[in-house]
Design a protein around this nucleic acid. Structure first.
Length: 365
DNA sequence: TGTCCACGTCT
DNA sequence: AAGACGTGGAC
């Protein structure tokens, strides 16, 4: 498959002229490349842009990342999703401090041992930051490669990815491995896009592309359909008292681990059941007002939510809850996006006038 | 509305 | 090997 060697020069030249100007490309130090690559796992460039610089400011180097309090760390990650990425980032930072003198190790196999760094990310850091000749095959590269070779193997199969890694390894330009890997990903993100239609008119590799010359770009890549999501009914409570809102910490494992949430119960509770549930938390409801239903879609679950706004009789004592002010909702407690519709309902009722805070700003976008 | 991106990593 | 783990935007 040395034939694929012909893509190298046109691709590198195309990348030189068409690389997007992205914040993490400015000073591609190992630390910056690492943070950006973890943020970019399963996450679009546009979503990461708003997080990268703020994160770097809060944790400018590996020791400061290792020392960040967990709540601050998760707050910096709030809204990005896959929160275990943030925890693994910090675990790896601690390993780097203890084992590698506060730096990332400059070798692919050592990078692979760090939490949160798998084959793709190890390849990306090794090639982009350390200029080592290692492939970095992500979903973009896989799609580009399968189209270039008109290969109808199922990319859900892990062995197929290993074949593509071997193929890239065989043609990788030793002196420009990082640029080559980035160029493949950039082409996949901006030209050889998923779904209809890839922009073959502006592709530097169109004439070398087996799928294109056969007129069938869109048949690739082939992959297994995903299993359907399961639907869960949840009832959320907006427990209000003196302008503050009750929050609860989620368990440290599983869905939205260690994030904060609105107190909630399984099932769609009617008013009578909701009163019982609130009493079971150690609180005395004065009035319950229904809130509109909302839906949140995770990869594998759909939450169908109903909500109750609950006015409480003081004094109030519930051991598992904290009472957060608007300021603390914004600055302190990491809250996943799933709760935003109901947090907004609280803020709309609580805000004095049209002032701006983090959530009302997000709401207006 | 629903489907896809989104192989990325961990378990 | 296959399921868990978020989010938002494009179409």
């Amino acid at each position: 498959m040395q034939k694929m060697k012909r893509i190298v020069q046109p691709l590198l030249r195309w990348f030189q002229r068409n690389a997007r100007d992205l914040p993490w490309r400015h000073h591609p130090t190992p630390y910056r490349v690492w943070i950006s690559e973890i943020m970019l796992q399963q996450t679009r460039v546009e979503a990461v842009k708003g997080y990268f610089e703020r994160f770097l400011k809060a944790a400018p180097d590996i020791p400061s990342l290792a020392a960040l309090p967990e709540e601050r760390l998760l707050k910096l990650w709030e809204g990005l999703g896959y929160y275990s990425r943030a925890r693994n980032l910090q675990k790896a930072a601690k390993v780097a401090v203890e084992k590698y003198g506060g730096r990332l190790p400059a070798s692919y196999p050592e990078l692979l041992t760090l939490p949160g760094i798998g084959p793709y990310t190890a390849g990306a850091i090794a090639s982009i930051a350390f200029h080592l000749p290692v492939p970095a095959v992500d979903g973009n590269v896989l799609r580009v490669w399968m189209r270039l070779t008109a290969d109808s193997a199922d990319i859900s199969d892990p062995t197929v990815k290993r074949c593509v890694e071997a193929g890239v390894q065989a043609i990788l330009p030793e002196e420009h491995s990082g640029d080559f890997n980035q160029a493949m990903m950039e082409l996949g993100a901006t030209v050889c896009v998923p779904n209809a239609p890839p922009k073959c008119e502006s592709c530097p590799l169109a004439e070398l592309c087996a799928a294109h010359t056969a007129g069938g770009e869109q048949q690739y890549p082939v992959k297994k359909p995903k299993p359907p999501r399961r639907i869960e009914q949840r009832t959320l409570f907006l427990l209000q008292q003196g302008g503050r809102l009750a929050l609860r910490r989620r368990p440290p494992r599983g869905l939205l681990a260690s994030m904060w949430e609105l107190p909630s119960e399984n099932g769609a509770l009617d008013q009578r059941q909701a009163v019982q549930a609130v009493r079971a938390m150690g609180l005395e409801p004065v009035r319950l007002l229904p809130l509109p239903p909302a839906k949140h879609i995770f990869t594998h679950i759909e939450w169908h939510m109903t909500g109750w706004r609950v006015l409480l009789a003081p004094p109030v004592s519930a051991p598992d809850l904290v009472w957060a002010s608007i300021e603390e909702l914004r600055e302190r407690y990491p809250l996943p996006s799933a709760f935003r519709p109901y947090l907004n309902a609280f803020l709309e009722k609580t805000e004095q006038s049209g002032d701006t805070n983090a959530y009302s700003a997000q709401r207006k976008q």
